[in-house]
Design a protein around this nucleic acid. Structure first.
Length: 491
RNA sequence: CGGGGUGUAGCGUAGCCUGGUAUCGCGCCACAUUUGGGAUGUGGAGGUCGUAGGUUCGAAUCCUGCCACCCCGACCA
């Protein structure tokens, strides 16, 4: 394949699309708005799943699976929920096809469903309808369930990983006896997401709460983690919702308390999606391609043997390369030995850089003689010749250092792009010329928020958690405010 | 759904204005020489020109409808 080069600085969208394609992560499918996640992209997603799943289990959750289809009547039981999703639902109306007289395959009109089925855009309704039967007593609580699934939201405009008609995600749905417990769960899962984002994806995130406008349809509070991409736009990377008793009431989910009274349960839901792949790409990658943090990379180290002409030398180099592979594997490091003989070393170097492999070890006859290898790191592109002695420990440390460096670089970038402003001129100037988050006072009204969005396209990404209180004036209206909130243009 | 653009081999493209059955590069296959940063040479395979109509002796090229994708809006994880 010809490698098409697109620079980040010239056209960020083109760079992104090109990278997704060149690095073999995903492609558009024949189905409008949908994507095919290719094996390499899926391997990264599987790693994300594994790390998230581990954290879900550690916090007491279990996995389960609920149907893809939701009867329309379930869906419409929670008023604000249906309002929020109505415009982007795929609806199944028939269950059979037939061959028409002209030989064409057509929908069999006699196979019309009595009640239409909605392809889930999220599963609250079908799950809460099920929970009604599962929850009878305080002894059934808390109910802590997660589901890995695909969902469909019929968006007008799509973009690989960031917004596709169908996407993969996990959605946690929990039920609790008290509001306090449910709120604690909501916050706990936000922390789980933040930990995952920062320690695995190496993407620093702002933890915060959404304003009423940006809240999930049907939630009382929506907490979120917000990342900052290299083009200065914010990306919502995960949400955790406190749903109050809205769904319990809509689906009549009550439990008998210790005092033998009947109470509605308290709910949460939380989710992250394949959008995280987009965050990963846009946060770290460069003009050479993807940059994967070692904790996430499906292949952490690639060994490229440099094979000479002589058979005997080839064997020596390969034997040494295999020995290194074995030693690294014993350390739990994921290593690929790229022994393809039909491509040149230079091609392999470039290809593995494109795919973001954190560490590359090159070994040739010269190294075999000197008992050395050439070790190159993807994040800084530094190369150094190292002695083979104790190589596995050196590589292990290097992987840790790379993880740390990638995170630190993103954190520095993020922190340099939070601009505190105090009036409208500074506010618009920061949005237009500086990019990133703008920290500003806001009078707390939806009206002002919407007005600002109309005027600048910037939205309130979140009200940061543990936000210091500070008296000030709203940048738009001048009305009093007690804290700053984070604005940004977002994906 | 509005505005703009694109659609030609697996990928990237030329040709379109001014109609005559498709150009080039990469990749692929074979052989040889190569291998410490995207190898070279020689030979070869690969195309319903997005799709359906129309105009024409003749359409990748002109006209119309449709579809898909990209960019900008509205919408959004």
């Amino acid at each position: 394949m010809e490698i098409k080069k697109v620079k980040r600085s010239e056209d960020y969208s083109a760079w992104y699309n090109n990278l997704v394609k060149q690095a073999d992560l995903a492609e558009h499918s024949a189905v409008k708005g949908c994507m095919v996640i290719k094996p390499y992209g899926y391997a990264i997603w599987e790693k994300m799943q594994a790390e998230l799943d581990k954290r879900f289990k550690e916090t007491g959750h279990q996995n389960a699976y609920f149907p893809l289809f939701i009867p329309k009547s379930f869906f419409s039981k929670e008023a604000s929920h249906v309002d929020g999703f109505a415009k982007e639902c795929a609806v199944v109306t028939h269950y059979r096809l037939k061959t028409a007289e002209n030989g064409e395959i057509v929908v069999d009109e006699t196979a019309k469903l009595e009640e239409e089925l909605i392809v889930r855009p999220t599963s609250e309704t079908i799950i809460w309808n099920t929970y009604r039967d599962w929850i009878k007593s305080h002894r059934d609580l808390p109910l802590l369930i997660n589901q890995w699934a695909n969902v469909v939201r019929w968006e007008m405009r799509t973009r690989l990983f960031l917004r596709t008609t169908e996407f993969l995600w996990q959605e946690g749905h929990t039920a609790h006896a008290t509001a306090e417990e449910a709120i604690a769960e909501t916050k706990q899962m936000l922390e789980v997401y933040a930990d995952f984002a920062e320690n695995i994806l190496a993407v620093p995130v702002m933890k915060g709460m959404k304003t009423a406008n940006e809240r999930f349809a049907g939630a009382l509070d929506t907490y979120c983690i917000e990342g900052l991409m290299q083009d200065g736009k914010a990306l919502q990377m995960g949400t955790s919702h406190f749903l109050g008793q809205n769904f319990a009431k809509a689906f009549d989910v009550k439990f008998a308390t210790k005092e033998n009274t009947q109470e509605y349960v308290w709910a949460t839901s939380w989710g992250v999606s394949t959008r995280l792949m987009g965050a990963l790409i846009m946060c770290h990658s460069d003009d050479e391609g993807l940059v994967l943090p070692p904790n996430l990379a499906p292949i952490q180290v690639v060994i490229v043997p440099i094979l000479g002409k002589k058979e005997e030398e080839k064997e020596q180099v390969l034997a040494k390369a295999k020995a290194i592979q074995q030693a690294l594997r014993k350390k739990g490091i994921s290593v690929k030995l790229d022994d393809r003989d039909h491509t040149s070393p230079g091609f392999k170097f470039a290809e593995h850089e494109l795919k973001g492999v954190p560490v590359r070890i090159a070994i040739g006859m010269r190294d075999v003689q000197n008992e050395t290898v050439e070790v190159a790191r993807r994040d800084t592109k530094e190369k150094q010749v190292m002695s083979m002695v104790d190589l596995e420990n050196k590589v292990e440390h290097l992987l840790t250092a790379i993880q740390q460096n990638i995170f630190q670089k993103a954190l520095d970038y993020r922190d340099e792009h939070i601009h505190a402003v105090n009036n409208w001129d500074e506010f618009t100037d920061a949005l237009e010329n500086k990019t990133g988050f703008v920290s500003a006072h806001w009078d707390g009204t939806s009206e002002t928020e919407i007005k600002i969005k109309e005027m600048t396209k910037a939205t309130i990404r979140c009200i940061p958690l543990n936000n210091p209180l500070e008296n000030g004036k709203c940048v738009l209206t001048g009305n009093p405010s007690t804290q700053r909130v984070l604005f940004a243009k977002a994906y």
